[in-house]
């Protein structure tokens, strides 16, 4: 069974098999025998072909965070739909998401409003820098998720447009 993982947003497809003695990772046509020894507080050792690689690993939901050789990586298990959206670079014109964490300064629209492409929907602030969020297309506002003063994380959906079928 093929699984879809991303390492820092880069998609990878893998599957894992098991023989009597060990697990085998299948990735890009290679079969790599792997075993994992877990220590305390997330310290573990991944063994590939007799070579031990020490790392620190914690998980949260479907995401595994790994510190390996001085770098921190974010490995996410995703369902096929999300995976192919990322792999294809697809982006929806129907939601306006936060480019970085910050706070809402002002909101210029309410649900039900009709907007033209380029209209300023809201002003956000991150690191003392104000950014105007503009409508990506003509349409009707379905929902505004935040009020002025509220903070949000990166990729939070700030404004939604009503879906259009054309």
């Amino acid at each position: 069974m093929l699984h879809h993982l991303t390492i820092d947003d880069m998609p990878h497809s893998i599957w894992l098999s098991r023989s009597e003695e060990e697990y085998c990772l299948h990735h890009e046509g290679r079969a790599i025998p792997v075993s994992l020894t877990q220590g305390t507080a997330g310290r573990c050792s991944l063994c590939i072909g007799g070579v031990k690689h020490p790392l620190t690993m914690v998980s949260s939901g479907d995401t595994v965070f790994v510190h390996f050789k001085g770098n921190a990586y974010n490995i996410a298990f995703s369902d096929a739909v999300t995976f192919f959206a990322q792999a294809g670079g697809g982006s929806a014109d129907d939601v306006i998401t936060a480019p970085m964490p910050g706070a809402v300064v002002s909101v210029n629209v309410a649900s039900g409003d009709s907007v033209n492409e380029g209209d300023v929907l809201a002003i956000i602030e991150s690191m003392k820098l104000e950014t105007a969020l503009k409508a990506p297309r003509n349409g009707i506002i379905e929902a505004v998720s935040y009020e002025p003063g509220q903070t949000f994380e990166r990729d939070a959906v700030l404004v939604k447009l009503v879906l259009e079928d054309d």
Partner: peptide, 18 residues
Amino acid sequence: SVLLGAAALSLRPVRDAA
């Protein structure tokens, strides 16, 4: 390989499938 191996072995759905 190290990252995917470690993640695969600790993600429940991947391990269950194996």
